[in-house]
Nucleic acid binder design. Sequence first.
DNA 1: CGGTCTCATGTAACCGGTTCCACGGATTCG
DNA 2: CGAATCCGTGGAACCGGTTACATGAGACCG
Lengths: 344, 344
Amino acid sequence: MAKKAVTIRDVARHAGVSVATASRALNDKAVVNPRTRDRILSVMAELGFTPSPAARRLSLGRTLTVGVVVSFLTRPQAAERLRGVDAVLTDSEFDLVIYNVETVQKRDHYLSTLGHSQRTDGLLVMSLPPSDEVGAALAGGPVPIVFIDVHTPSVDTVPRVIGDDIKGGKLAARHLLELGHRSIGFIGDSTEDPFGFTSSHDREIGLRSELAEAGVVIRPEWAGHGAHGRYEARDRARAMLAADDRPSAIFAASDTQAFGVIAAARELGIRIPDDLSVIGYDDIEAADYVGLTTVRQQLFESGRRGAEILLSEIQNRADEPPVARLSPELVIRATTAPSKEGRG
Amino acid sequence: MAKKAVTIRDVARHAGVSVATASRALNDKAVVNPRTRDRILSVMAELGFTPSPAARRLSLGRTLTVGVVVSFLTRPQAAERLRGVDAVLTDSEFDLVIYNVETVQKRDHYLSTLGHSQRTDGLLVMSLPPSDEVGAALAGGPVPIVFIDVHTPSVDTVPRVIGDDIKGGKLAARHLLELGHRSIGFIGDSTEDPFGFTSSHDREIGLRSELAEAGVVIRPEWAGHGAHGRYEARDRARAMLAADDRPSAIFAASDTQAFGVIAAARELGIRIPDDLSVIGYDDIEAADYVGLTTVRQQLFESGRRGAEILLSEIQNRADEPPVARLSPELVIRATTAPSKEGRG
DNA sequence: CGGTCTCATGTAACCGGTTCCACGGATTCG
DNA sequence: CGAATCCGTGGAACCGGTTACATGAGACCG
């Protein structure tokens, strides 16, 4: 059954040429007489020849492979980003191999090991901030790396694609202001995040700066920082909303936390959007189902751009690390409405 | 800057041994004097030697790679299944390469081409039913293949992992029966699906058979078949619920469609679960956010089992294609409640 | 008509591992 | 004490492509 695979030498023999010519016909790189090339190609088809990628890689000294270091678990947007990466790679000669990260150890292991191995020609790292020393080591390594959605300062010298979280925060602020809201609350991550994530913080900065321009300041008791996660956000929102004086709108730094806010409001009998407007961030799948107004990141695009940058870095490393900055956009659904304070 | 990579010959020279011995020390397969092995290993560490996977693959005649043909788009469960696959492969010597499918052409291309190429040692195909001729060709091909969540008859001779949709339908039925419901509706896919998906149909069969045992029959006007998708399901549900006589519970063949049912009920002012119980299928992420009662498939487990079967097939192809059948489980949340008909 | 240039092709080395086979020395056995 | 066995190691072929260099035949030129 298992016949030996057809090699390029078999092809050469059947076509009455040398392996060199057969190889040239296969890759049509060099000059080959059109008639002999056609003959060789038809012999290849006839014998069912498929070139061995392993041999090709070895002799070329390139892996023809791009690695993606990603965590499926932590954020649900990974699949969409991967689609963007795939859209670029599918038209290239590169295979896409996945290095899934479920633990911090695994992350550091991959990050410190893949940058110096001969397993890939280039690496994409998604949403996984490296520890400081690992990050520094990566920048100068032999394997080109592009970070997507990583905001830590430790990767300042590495090519990367980042969403403009500050601008996203401003978008949310403007939307609420236009609806007439002036009493605005914020629910987000703790300011000192162990992982070094800064997106929640940046979104808050954008929010505050845009509000400040309109003369609106967030009251200290309406800024709830704490652990990420729906239930934690719900608890903070409940405390905020149960007080006598409560905000008329809340910006949550992620959709997950926005769902927590909605749950708290429901428990307290506060109607959304009539009595309280809620806006999230990310536009995860569930946001559409629930009708959550939110700020959408260009997930697919971030993967696409990352892959494009990586391919160009593989071909020819730029002196200055390229940085792509993607603009978020507002998605208005059913959880925000005009303020009833009547000041707008 | 870019120094030549350290090869096993460099190691051999520095350690004063032959490449054969160095290779043996690297793989500790064959007998090597412990002292020389330690010396070789320390030289490797000192020189920063990392073996070239390409060379290894070529000389071993194995790709050390497993391919996963998957569509990120069509169903959101892919990521969870991939995690299961990864959990197995991460402890193996195999890399995981992704072949993302966005079109039917792409699907057929990959399926017909990868089974005969030397790109992978084995293939996992997720939720993508092959066309009949392609499916038949795959079964006898040189590359072992395992299908996950593919129910078409054309893959009967191929190893596979399938969820027991009939049993899932029965679980849903039993839950509704235990809550006292007797007027039960169904919203699902069209019976003649162009892709050959049969899961909706199987779930309906399970539902009906369990109901039949309790003497309950679904009225023809309460069985709504049509295109998959939330809005299509909503329209069908609206027609069903707007009638004078409406069911007290609806089983939707997917969570996506269950959300459509919920939307229709909301439009009509029908309260859930007070006036109408709704149960879905799949337990997608949004189901948890919304509190949808549903039937959960073992997604992670399906990936895990598929990968395990594949690895064993790669090592040694079984005479009988192995089949793993995974049981679904009921997840009770907030969209189902006891019937008010009072018959229970 | 000899020399040079071009084009098409062949020869063989090379990529960096793995492994078959051979070999020398030490150990064991009759 | 000679032969058989075993252990550890080395030499070299091999996996299947790519490509630098060589070669030979025509074309073109003065």
